[in-house]
Amino acid sequence: MNQSIDVRGLSCPLPVVAVRNKLLEMKKGILEVLVDTGTSKDNITRMATNTDWKVEIKEEGEEYLLIISR
């Protein structure tokens, strides 16, 4: 089952913490994450790939949709 989380407007490290907690809860599946800064995109991508999740990034204007799966 796909889940989603919106971390737009949050300052680092809150987006990474929120996504990490969600991934720990899920263990596997697909999580769609909406972010609004390149820094959040990069930090979440790094954390996810370091913990064996795959990340696909879609740029949507000024925002990004990260599709994190395992």
Score class of each variant (00 low, 15 high):
R70A: 11
V33H: 04
L66I: 05
N21Q: 10
A48Y: 02
E63H: 13
T45P: 08
L34E: 08
D36K: 01
R8M: 05
V35M: 00
S40R: 05
L24R: 12
K58G: 00
K28F: 13
L31N: 11
K27R: 13
L31K: 11
E59R: 15
A18Y: 07
I44W: 11
E25M: 14
K58A: 04
S4P: 01
S69G: 04
V17S: 08
S11R: 12
K28R: 14
T51R: 10
M26P: 06
S4K: 04
T45W: 10
L66W: 03
A48P: 01
M26R: 12
I30T: 15
G61Q: 05
D42E: 14
K28A: 13
T45C: 14
K27M: 05
V16G: 04
L34Q: 13
P13D: 06
L65W: 00
P13C: 08
I44Q: 10
D52R: 14
D52K: 15
A48M: 03
N2L: 14
V19A: 07
S69A: 07
A18M: 09
K41C: 13
M26H: 11
S69I: 02
R70Q: 12
G38R: 00
I68T: 03
N50S: 08
K28S: 15
E63A: 06
R46D: 05
E25D: 15
K27N: 07
P13A: 06
K22Y: 00
Y64W: 15
K41A: 07
I67W: 03
I68S: 02
D36W: 02
V35T: 08
L65D: 00
G9L: 05
E25H: 15
T37W: 03
D6F: 06
K22N: 02
R46K: 11
M47I: 07
K58Q: 09
V19I: 09
T51D: 13
L10K: 06
D6S: 04
T51C: 03
D36M: 03
T45I: 10
M1V: 12
V33K: 03
R20F: 08
P13H: 06
I68R: 01
L31E: 10
T49D: 05
N21E: 13
L34K: 14
L24D: 04
V16E: 15
K41T: 08
P15R: 00
V33M: 07
D6L: 07
E60K: 14
V16I: 14
M26V: 06
D36A: 05
G29I: 09
R20C: 06
R20Y: 07
A48F: 03
R8F: 10
I5C: 09
T49R: 14
Y64P: 00
D6V: 07
R8T: 12
K58C: 02
E60I: 09
C12A: 07
K22Q: 11
C12S: 09
I57H: 00
V35I: 03
L10F: 14
K54R: 13
G9Y: 08
K54F: 11
G38P: 02
L23Y: 02
E62K: 12
